[in-house]
Amino acid sequence: MTTVATIEIESYYDRVRAALAGLAPEMRDDLLEDLPDHLAEVLAEGDGSLRDRLGEPEAYADELRAAAGVEPGAVPTAHGVHRALERGLGRATDLVRRFDLQAGRLVGYPRLVDLLRAVAPGWWVLRGWIVAQFICGTHDRSTWHGFIPRIGGNALAGLLCTIAVIAVSVWIGRRCAGFTGWPRRVMTAVSTVIALWAVLVLADTVGATSYAYGGPPDSYNAPYGSEVSDVYVYDRDGNPVVGARLFDQDGNPIQIGSPYCLDGSPATGAGPDGTATEWTYPLCPSSTGPFRSGPGPLPGAATATPTAKSTAKASPTR
């Protein structure tokens, strides 16, 4: 269908809809549900514009109302707030429709919806993969095993699960192409939840795993701003601890700081050649750190028992 035809249908439809403004909204929506498709058929199967063939939209609306047995006086007309809401909703719908047309033109399709329809099979596959990740137990960063999920540590089972769920997702996608009314709305809602979950959890996880090699995940750095380039650990007595490893409450290694020292050399604590795999602190043991000779003993540490000596205390704490 050409853009011209689409615009003709939209404008004809809008005028019919406007002419039926006196009807109750549900009744009008129900009456007009298939009209755009119907007008497209009319236009596709003959010559001449819609107005040439069907007459003025207002006359069409009158004939439609009479044939459907909906008398203008027989239904309650909207008043006050209701009518304002109606009008607002109508305006919003018009805006969306205009955006649909204009955005579509930008990407070379009659309507944006046409592009979305064209890429829908890709979304079905992606949706299947997302659901498979969820079913196989990927619920946050700590349960992420990579693009192929695992079932009980078994990658093959995870792969089979993924393939099966993708197949189901594609099957559902093909089947619900013709859904209208509430089944369609339910499908849209479910898809939205899946997409949101993917954005909130998976994107964060995938981002974090590929990010760990470039620098620390944001969440660790957040409380300190972005200035933390190294962490120095001292015991109760103020003696520096070298080669300390830090973990959060979930057992995830805390990877904070830069894999390069201030002088530009690779941080040995980050791993061999600064590949950022070890994360032992301080990352740059050769540097003197914030104190010339340690921060001194903890206040009141004079009475500490010898066992307390091994209790390390990291300077930044969460």
Binding site: L31, D34, L35, H38, V42, R53, L54, Y60, A61, E63, L64, R65, A66, A67, A68, G69
Partner: peptide, 8 residues
């Protein structure tokens, strides 16, 4: 009429 059939 088209509208009559559609409405019917």
């Amino acid at each position: 009429g088209d509208a009559s059939v559609y409405g019917t």
